[in-house]
């Protein structure tokens, strides 16, 4: 539903987005990740027609954003960065304005606004000017505005920024609930969000895609993928470490001592699962195990590893 082809944006000598190609299908929730200034927002602004691309093309539901802008924009619900809204309007008037601009009149507009308000739980603040609302409510007004016309494509720039944990949970549920029928792109800094709602994660850096896969695939790139952490009394440190190191499935180990306990992390050899070996070892040796768990991987670590600028540069020179 969203086809991005060779998208490039230059601001003077600075290239914000460089030859980006990406397709998002119905049913996908794509998490757009990257450090600040990587080009996430710029890409979203080009997809929604706010910025004109320097090169490349974007099609939304088959409509070219450059040549058939209005049809493309009608198919998109967009939450811009910071959820801008007219502060002097009440939430109700603002949403009614959006409904009218999107071509809904009379009872239809009222029904659309009511449905969006219900989904974003805005009932309590409908008649307050938006500028007097808390950050969380403002964000939800922005969300309501974006989903009002039930668009096939949703593009949201940091939809949960500024929300408290309960609100984040509610918004994620809302997005998950709509996911089947839509193609959704969300940008975020919160890696846990990718785990929670995204079916696909794309990491960009320096305007280029540096990773593209399911969250599980990205996790598999982590050094911590299938790594095992075991917590033992500090007195057992030397013997235990030696025995774990000698296991065939273990490649390397980390050790950290805090007070009278020691934490040993065993990193697996390729495709090996040390959890079985280590738990068997612990039973055999009758260790006084305080804690034992295997990890799926750490997204933040993957993120750091592939968005250091060196990694992007290597990829650029390879391409």
């Amino acid at each position: 539903m969203i086809e991005i082809e060779g998208l490039t944006k230059r601001f003077g000598p600075y290239t914000a987005v460089s030859n980006l190609t990406l397709t998002v299908n119905k049913g996908e929730v794509l998490g757009f990740l990257g450090p600040n200034g990587a080009g996430k927002s710029t890409t979203m602004k080009m997809v929604t027609g706010y910025l004109a691309a320097t090169a490349g093309r974007v099609r939304v539901c088959g409509h070219d954003v450059e040549t058939d802008e209005l049809a493309a924009q009608a198919a998109i619900g967009y939450l811009p960065e910071g959820a801008p809204a007219y502060g002097d309007m009440t939430a109700r008037l603002f949403l009614e304005f959006i409904a009218r601009v999107r071509g809904f009149g009379g009872a239809d507009a009222k029904a659309r606004v009511a449905a969006a308000v219900e989904k974003t739980e805005l009932e309590g603040v409908l008649d307050q000017p938006i500028e007097t609302l808390s950050k969380g409510f403002k964000r939800r007004v922005g969300l309501a505005q974006a989903i009002l016309h039930d668009p096939p494509v949703l593009i949201m720039d940091e939809p949960t920024d500024g929300l408290d944990p309960n609100q984040k949970f509610a918004v994620r549920n809302l997005i998950r609930g709509m996911a089947k029928e839509k193609a959704i792109i969300i940008s975020t800094h919160l890696l846990e969000e990718v785990d929670a709602i995204c079916t696909r994660a794309v990491i960009i850096d320096c305007g280029q895609i540096v990773a593209d896969g399911t969250p599980a695939e990205l996790l598999a790139r982590s050094r911590y993928h299938n790594a095992v952490t075991i917590v033992l009394p500090a007195t057992m440190q030397a013997g235990a470490l030696m025995k774990i190191k000698n296991l065939a499935s273990v490649a390397t180990t980390d050790i950290a001592i805090a007070g009278d306990i020691v934490t040993i992390t065993a990193f697996p050899r390729k495709n090996a699962l040390p959890i079985e070996d280590i738990s068997a070892l612990a039973v055999r040796e009758q260790w006084d195990v305080k804690e034992l768990h295997a990890e799926a991987g750490r997204l933040d670590e993957v993120f750091r590893a592939i968005t250091t600028h060196d990694a992007a540069r290597t990829k650029a020179s390879a391409a």
Partner: peptide, 11 residues
Amino acid sequence: TGTMELLLTLP
């Protein structure tokens, strides 16, 4: 105020 982005991305 950033509402320009909202306004110009409406159809």
